[in-house]
Design a binder for these strands. Structure first.
Lengths: 222, 222
DNA sequence: TCCTTATTGCGACTGATGTTGCGTTAAGAT
DNA sequence: ATCTTAACGCAACATCAGTCGCAATAAGGA
């Protein structure tokens, strides 16, 4: 990761700067190149999936030389990692349907639609995570962010009395969504429109049964 | 797939054979080459993961020429598909611990141990499924076989009264195992020794609640 | 044993991928 | 305006993946 990572300090110190720290030039041309390249990545990805995404194709479509892309992003994984980081500052919120099972079903529906229709962006990013450690890291950050935002789903369910207190939001969310990813991505099963609802219902039932509450008794010790 | 697939007929017909069907030579040298190559694939895979598995490396380690590997297996995906098919005729049986949750936990434990320790064989095969359609097909066959063998877990649970009748064995199995794959393979979370048991408990609780029984009432019609 | 030919070995070739050295452009500070 | 040098463009180079034509080997049947 040598793109971005601009330190916010060492701007006006003048004298006491580290001689081994070159000042980045992030304005003007560099910013324009970056924007062109990231746009080209997105366009090529929706056009031809992961397999159509080569460094050469990106450079050509961005109107930039191959070497520039190699030096700044190293490989396709680095490109996707940058795209993912740049697109993660969106305003996504989990759905609020009024019930735990409804929220989880709606979440699964989003996952289902992102994965069911052919070679989509999501599948390409996940596939990239198996090739590039940079893309894998960006994916982990992306998912961590999504899980943090989804914690409110569990909180609301606890308030409604649908779940025992102190239920593990992450485990519940994984239980609900993992079957959808597993069926469509790993097992490559034929898309079943009932899958989102059924996986959500399973996770919700397990949650109601207290599987994701670490302690079922009233004594938190031991 | 042009390796194996030896037709069992047209052995002694003599006169009426198809002129466009060349007789395969599966004995002696060809069999030895195949064994050497598949062994080399396994050794390289446990040594360096998927990224260390190139056709050239396989050929060199097997003491075989590159062209031979390209002609018989086409690419790395074809190699892995053949390895997977050759290794699938084992005598694997699902565990029988006496309870549904115990069986699912033991299954998840196997998955966990196959995925938790570094870049294992399983992860390499799954990663290959994202690159080669041949490897993806072999993986689908492998998983279908495993799921069929695991149906007995659900049957036994129904007999014991732990599950309602006509529970969907596949959906239950996916609900139990998917979180393990998802955490370790996609989310790349730190291995949690409690994960197999917890995921199994969640699926078992959902199963007990009747989520995987299509009809809860006693009337199977409509 | 001999004959046919499937299969393998060999080397040359093409194209894609990734690297390096060097000259040019322009960002940012003075 | 001027200077320093980070970032870019360019071309040559190196490496790897994959294919093709041809000769050598050996499997399987007569």
């Amino acid at each position: 990761m040598d793109a971005d990572a601009e330190a916010s300090e060492e701007t006006g110190h003048g004298e006491g700067r580290d001689p081994a720290a070159p000042r980045r030039r992030t304005g003007g041309r560099s910013a324009r190149v970056r924007a062109q390249v990231l746009a080209a990545v997105g366009e090529l990805l929706v056009a031809g999936g992961y397999d159509g995404l080569t460094v050469d194709a990106v450079a050509e479509r961005a109107g930039v030389h191959r070497t520039t892309v190699y030096r700044r992003w190293r490989d396709v994984g680095g490109l996707l990692a940058d795209v993912l980081d740049a697109a993660s500052d969106d305003t996504w919120r989990p759905p609020d349907t009024g019930s735990l099972e409804g929220d989880l079903t709606a979440l699964n529906q989003e996952v289902y639609e992102a994965l069911a229709g052919g070679p989509g962006l999501t599948a390409a990013l996940i596939a990239a995570g198996f090739r590039s450690s940079e893309a894998a890291g960006a994916l982990s950050r992306f998912w961590e962010d999504r899980h943090a935002r989804c914690a409110v789903v569990t909180d609301r369910a606890v308030e409604r009395g649908e779940l025992p207190a102190a239920s593990d939001a992450r485990a519940l969310l994984v239980a609900a969504t993992a079957p959808v990813y597993h069926e469509l991505l790993l097992l490559r099963a034929a898309p079943d429109p009932e899958l989102p609802r059924r996986a959500a219902a399973g996770a919700a039932a397990a949650g109601r049964a207290g599987v994701y509450a670490p302690l079922t008794g009233p004594f938190p010790s031991a």
